[in-house]
Write a protein that binds this DNA or RNA. Sequence first.
DNA 1: TATAGTACTATACTTTAGTATAGTCAATCA
DNA 2: TGATTGACTATACTAAAGTATAGTACTATA
Lengths: 133, 133
Amino acid sequence: MKKTTEKEHSACTGILKPVRDSLDILSGKWKLPIIIALTFGEKRFTEITQEVQGITDRMLSKELRDLELNGLVRRNIQDSYPVKVTYALTEHSKTLRPVINSLKNWGIMHKEKLKQECREFKSAGKKTRSPVA
Amino acid sequence: MKKTTEKEHSACTGILKPVRDSLDILSGKWKLPIIIALTFGEKRFTEITQEVQGITDRMLSKELRDLELNGLVRRNIQDSYPVKVTYALTEHSKTLRPVINSLKNWGIMHKEKLKQECREFKSAGKKTRSPVA
DNA sequence: TATAGTACTATACTTTAGTATAGTCAATCA
DNA sequence: TGATTGACTATACTAAAGTATAGTACTATA
């Protein structure tokens, strides 16, 4: 086992920072459900509340604002009656595709792995973690 | 604007569930820093606390346990004096590579985009969000 | 016998994320 | 005039995530 060098350390943070930037945008309970709900076309505020089950108005309002600030969602006001506000994904949001895809694929694969390990565990009766020395 | 169909809706959740599974494992303040700290070789408990600046023993202990349960980290006890416990990434953890990479790349790209938009905003003086109708 | 190193755990606390419930404002319709 | 719709905001709360600080069990060395 070797000590971590300065070079390695700066490589770490070089990876870590942008990864965290991405996660800040995607993590939390509602951001992805909202994004996914909008992938099939623009929607109005109340339509999104219906589509994203369980979200409150307060959360939706806040999350939409965040997503808009990050350039992922565009807000259009139609000055008709009743006042229509629609939300749509931006072109930029499409760049998230590979990110979402890799997360999806890994999620599926990882679950398979855990299931398999569980089977092995049951048949072999091996222990995962020994009691603390 | 069209109503979301049932078919579309089930496609949504089909994406959403595994994505959330992945995010559950990667999100939070410490999981990735720990994983990244271990990419350069196995480390002991105290070495990780030094490498991952700001983490408390309690958090490290908890996060390592989570990561071990998810099969991403292996724990080895050497029964020497002083008792040595080392942590290393598993083979399975390497499957995270594309995930981390896509998050990293998107994070970098997204930041660039925001910076650029900020410049445009300043020069054009356009407003992002009109006052509520 | 006292001290120190290692890998933790316990308890109590603060901060952040998310929820519940109600209210507002403008316009139009009955 | 009063009810209704749409897109929110305000206030107050609970739950989850994270922090601070101290303590423990084991063993070896001084």
